[in-house]
């Protein structure tokens, strides 16, 4: 599966959102029960995930998927390596903006699962483009250009894989 990494990341964000909602409701209930509870120091609320995090996870997952495809089909290197490099460039810039260093992923190996096909990579790019388009629409002013360029780049990748 090309985007296993990204899907896992999105699920994690989903969990933390639910957890946030849970704590918000809990805090409301506590406020209603009386003043005694205010004596306790409020725990530091967890930082909401940066909206760029799911885009970053996708970029890393795509770069890895290309690496995997190149290992299993070395003849595709010339065509695929520049696309992987674009995703790594995006990931580096987003991780810099979020202030979260990039974790180095496992080295691609030929034995790790079925070969990723060009058609599957293209589908993954189209899906990732959709995510980026949605993210651009709601992005803060100072990030709209960055996220827009990432969306456009993913579209050009899908075109290059036709």
């Amino acid at each position: 599966m090309v985007l296993t990494g990204a899907v896992r990341e999105i699920r994690e964000i989903g969990h933390s959102r639910r957890w946030l909602l849970g704590t918000a409701a809990g805090a409301g209930a506590a406020a209603l029960t009386g003043c005694g509870l205010f004596d306790q120091a409020d725990p530091e609320p967890p930082k909401p995930p940066d909206p760029l995090e799911s885009l970053l996870a996708e970029a890393v997952a795509l770069a890895t998927a290309y690496d995997q495809a190149i290992v299993s089909q070395p003849g595709l290197r010339t065509r695929l390596a520049p696309l992987a490099e674009d995703h790594r460039t995006h990931a580096a810039e987003m991780s810099r903006l979020i202030g979260k260093p990039l974790a180095s992923g496992p080295a691609p190996s030929a034995s790790a699962g079925p070969a990723t096909t060009v058609a599957a990579l293209r589908q993954a790019e189209l899906a990732a483009q959709k995510t980026a388009v949605a993210a651009c629409k709601v992005a803060a002013t100072d990030r709209a250009g960055l996220v827009g360029s990432i969306a456009a780049c993913r579209a050009t990748h899908a075109e290059a894989l036709r």
Binding site: P82, D86, G145, S149, A152, C153, T156, E159
Partner: peptide, 23 residues
């Protein structure tokens, strides 16, 4: 950006994509 990539392919310019279209 997609048309630029299509023209690069027709002109056999490699790579056919750039990391930051629009920048």
């Amino acid at each position: 950006a997609v048309r630029a990539t299509r023209w690069r392919r027709l002109a056999e310019v490699a790579p056919a994509t750039i990391a930051w279209p629009g920048r």
